[in-house]
Amino acid sequence: MNNLDRTELGFIAALPLLIACGLLLPQWIVNYIHVSLGTGLVALGVMVQMRAGLVSFGQGLYFCIGGYAAGLAGRLWGLSDFFLLIALGIAAGLVVSFLLGFLLRRYRRIFYAMLSLAVSMILFGLLSSSEELGSTDGFNLPATSYLGWLPGQSVSGDVLYVATCIPTVICAILLHRFLRSPMGYVGEALRENEIRIEYLGMSARKAVHIIYVIAAVVSSIGGVLWAMALGHIDPEMTNWVTSAQFVFIAILSGIGNVAAPLFGTLLLEFIRVYAVEIAPDSWHIIVGSVMLLIIVFLPRGLWSLVSSNNGLKNKFTHRVKAASEPEGARS
């Protein structure tokens, strides 16, 4: 793929940097980065929908589906191959979201939020009451292998970390591409005016369906990566409280760029470590107050502080100007 833009180049440059971090920084920090890569992808799934004006309070569903797809493959068939598990996670997310999409695509706004929540709680109910799957305790995953190679105990963590970085960066680049594509544009348009979309000859519902599936697949991949990183899964992954955290991350970091939710996840992870230590019973008060402050004072999220093209508003214009610049004379 040619004509990479700044964000895409940034991600490609970030990959070796990310891997270097993993090898140089202390282990406990790397663990947090590692885990945030998985949850970061779920936050990205939330962000992609938010760009189209759709707020999902149930993205944990696909986080969980990815995790359980990987976990069950290990439990039932003894599978532990990194690539195979990711493929399974994608397949599971794809199938479920394609089917559920027919229901969800009929809804918008608060109904979309509530129904996505309801659907995720169905899985929560099923998993919590299923004794064979460890009910609320969940179960463990076997150590990850790579095309038949099982790394030794001493390096397995590092190998998994590096292996996790790669799909995360690929997903981020692909999602960025998606947001720049005609369908990504339709997403923006969807948020603003559906009647016009229909009158342009496009099905708004189909557009919602496509966005829903894409968000689901990314989140499933996040679920697989997270499950492998932690080596454990449980139904909490699809509790609405987990899903709401992803919404929080998207609000906090802003939806102006795909990098924002990834950074936001990491930031939150670190803050949580300290906050829980200092004031264990006040963590939610902090999160809730920050969220209120962001909504009121920084509606485009933290990303708008570091970005020159603030959030949604000037996004296209910016790019359009860049695209037409070589021609000169236009004003």
């Binding site: 720049r180 594509s181 005609p182 339709v186 790019r319 695209a323 037409s324 021609e327």
Partner: peptide
């Protein structure tokens, strides 16, 4: 639907 090709090209602008 086109998913992964940028929409903004000089021609279309």
């Amino acid at each position: 639907p086109v998913l992964f090709r940028p929409v903004v090209t000089r021609e279309i602008v």
